[in-house]
Design a protein around this nucleic acid. Sequence first.
DNA 1: TTCATTGAAGTAAACGATTACTTACTATAT
DNA 2: ATATAGTAAGTAATCGTTTACTTCAATGAA
Lengths: 334, 334
Amino acid sequence: MTEKKNISIKDVALRANVSTATVSHVINGTRFVSNETKQKVHFAMNELNFRINSVARSLRSRKSYIIAFLAPILASETSNFYFMSVAAGVQSVLKQRGYHLILSDSSDNVEAENKEISMFDSQMIDGLIVAPASRDCDYEQLFGDYPVVYIDRVPNHCERDSVLIDNKTVTKEATQRILDKGHHKIAFLSGPLSVTTTIERYEGYSETLMNAGLELDDSLTCFEEVSFENGYRKMGDLLEKNPTAIFVTDNVMAMGAMTYLQDHSIRIPDQLAVVGFDDVQWTRVTHPPLTVIQQPSFQLGVKTAEVMLQRIEDGTSGKEEHRLKANLIVRQSL
Amino acid sequence: MTEKKNISIKDVALRANVSTATVSHVINGTRFVSNETKQKVHFAMNELNFRINSVARSLRSRKSYIIAFLAPILASETSNFYFMSVAAGVQSVLKQRGYHLILSDSSDNVEAENKEISMFDSQMIDGLIVAPASRDCDYEQLFGDYPVVYIDRVPNHCERDSVLIDNKTVTKEATQRILDKGHHKIAFLSGPLSVTTTIERYEGYSETLMNAGLELDDSLTCFEEVSFENGYRKMGDLLEKNPTAIFVTDNVMAMGAMTYLQDHSIRIPDQLAVVGFDDVQWTRVTHPPLTVIQQPSFQLGVKTAEVMLQRIEDGTSGKEEHRLKANLIVRQSL
DNA sequence: TTCATTGAAGTAAACGATTACTTACTATAT
DNA sequence: ATATAGTAAGTAATCGTTTACTTCAATGAA
């Protein structure tokens, strides 16, 4: 290991015949420096190929310009495109404002998630954006001294800002639409009820059915760990109950379900009407194209990043809830 | 802004009646400390709710445990799933070894990319994994004093390790297979020839045709900026040349192309045989399911992370080229 | 001439860890 | 009794910035 000496502000100062304070102020524009001196400093920086040491800067200024994003991004090789797209939205804002994004995967598993959280200390990150894996975890004691914004879902005792999708409204809208098409036996396939997102969606579904005077039939609903395989398998199970329509509230599940339907040559929407979740691209190339609820995933990321930066820059805290509206995209599967 | 004093190793030392050196050694296990003292230190750390300051640690130890990944991950809202999956692979290894991953987007645009690179200084990251946007950029002068590994593609003058897909072999294999099915007019739709990946794929395609004694017909090949829309549009254009098969070397392009074919009720594979790239999930739900070349994207990330960590830990450098084999997944579109 | 004011830049103490070098003590060998 | 080695832990310099405080010279007012 060659121990390389780094070019520091000190070297620059020496070369330019000024003090380190002056160099620092030139770099940051934090106080007036005569043009003459500025030029000397810039010249020296170029000559020495000086690169500022952001770690030292962070240490002193207590600011790292790094935001962490903790979500079930990589649950498996079959990544979750929804959160990837959310991450993209977050990134696009942060990048513009000179922040970096650290991506962390929670695998939707509380232990893994808590371990990740405790790996971040307060100096390392300026803020944390998290899609909590559990509703019952006491997150507050885990967090460091940085702003936190919940995204997509919230835990039971939420003491922070949150940016969410208006799940209930949109699922009500979609369910009503399915009803309007004359369906009575509407199956509901989703992930486990352990996250608020799913709960809200189920509420939208069930309340709409009840408002329509229909009985809730538990054998038509299915809450299973999210995976392509489970979507495939459970689609088969649900089909035995003879629904005329199905509402799948997760895109990975939906893909599994659609594959099952295709493998068994079920005609959509004649034999079974299908409504999916997330306007991911594959929903456009199925046969027929899928009617889906489009979550503004990228926008969700954008909004969250904005809320985060606001908190950081104001130095305030609070627990505002932001809801983004989702839309029904009608294609030919309903 | 409340100026909060952080609990430092010094506070712990004071509370436990030991020196800061001892506390540090207890934390890192870097020298023997009697059990009695260890306990005092742990007790004090708990009492004070001490969290180590990783920034200070990085400054002194010149190690940040952060790796940056720079690739066209978020080109647009229609994210590139391939690199997302690669990122997942990288992450899975780094996480295990206690490293963090910073995600950066190059948008496949040299200026944006160079700007990102210069935002990383040598103290901030321990290594850089990059899918270079251009072949002609002199990257060496941009890089800081950290190991660099190229992933998926390399620039013209490559002075670093690289982890790549064996594009030529697999495209030869696929093209041969198309030929074996009796096709002579095989269209080729891909991204621009500005990255080695595309070049290698085109080489595989053209060499195979030539070896088969066929003339290369330029009107059957198309190199266009990657996007869903371009895939859709160019599929239409190519179709006018009456190919009997098409090879699309990018999954986003392929999705556009497939949508065009579906919109125009072209029967696959009767009217047109199709081979795509990347075994992304939507290729399983098209009608019919798509025959594709499966790139081991997750594995590519894994391998790259391993190469990176090896370099970091050995403190060595070099320019080894690693190639991962891709496979043809035969479904019903060919 | 003297004193206050202003402008431009310098001095040096943090930030919170790591670690080479010392020290203080105990146990054993001569 | 004294030298020697070995054990456990302490001292303080250092990493490269930022920034409160200080300095020095020039200007203008009294």
